[in-house]
Design a protein around this nucleic acid. Sequence first.
DNA 1: ACCCTTCTGCAACCAATCGTTGCACACACA
DNA 2: TGTGTGTGCAACGATTGGTTGCAGAAGGGT
Lengths: 125, 125
Amino acid sequence: MSAAAIDTVDDDLWSAIGDPTRRRIVDLLLTHGDGTATTLSEQLPVTRQAVAKHLGVLDRVVLVRATPAGREKRYRVDEAQLAHAVAQLASVTAAWDARLRRIKRIAETIQHDRPASKRRTTSGG
Amino acid sequence: MSAAAIDTVDDDLWSAIGDPTRRRIVDLLLTHGDGTATTLSEQLPVTRQAVAKHLGVLDRVVLVRATPAGREKRYRVDEAQLAHAVAQLASVTAAWDARLRRIKRIAETIQHDRPASKRRTTSGG
DNA sequence: ACCCTTCTGCAACCAATCGTTGCACACACA
DNA sequence: TGTGTGTGCAACGATTGGTTGCAGAAGGGT
């Protein structure tokens, strides 16, 4: 176990949703169905060019897909890939949660195990 | 609803675990209980100084705590704060997962709603 | 057809961050 | 006291998130 879910994470995908602005872009696209760099930038505290760059990153990891519509370029979330990303979040969440749970249980076990004992357990791991 | 969990995320905390190297550092600390910049760097593909910087970042958001031990500086994961971070991951995971589920349900509903019509028209956009 | 608006794309630039190397300092121990 | 090992600080380069500025393309009104 150990490294567990951590080593199975696609770093590119994770770092794509690691940026707060990109997370909000994904969220806006989910909310409105689609959007362009221009329309998205109106709802964000950054410029259109910054949004365009972010869309480029999201497109590179296929979290969004572009569809030319006239002179516009509409972006939509790729649901399959977002589901993939969500699964990775969930994976790490579960791994750490389990680890925390285990640590907590061990701590409790130790208290139960040695109410007044001076037994030095295996410290060096 | 909508923006939901996204806007409640602590960006500093998220970006702390957004870095792959820092995620692995946290994971190593969880695995071994504690560690120093030197020992951690031996198990990572980066230098001790890079690890030290990452530990600084993690310390700033209290995901880890330092304990001077002789001339060493042992770091341990702050379980409460990691639990907090995990909760935020879970929050975003749940929000997007719900969104995806809803989209999927809508898509299915549309199909049920018009069983006799040619679906090829829906793909055009 | 023409002009004007507006949407996109490219390039230069600034600031912050991740990583490196190099060196100085501190502490343990023979 | 000297030596080895661990830590801290500083400078540097590369990458990235953000900006501004400008050029090009496509739709709309007259």
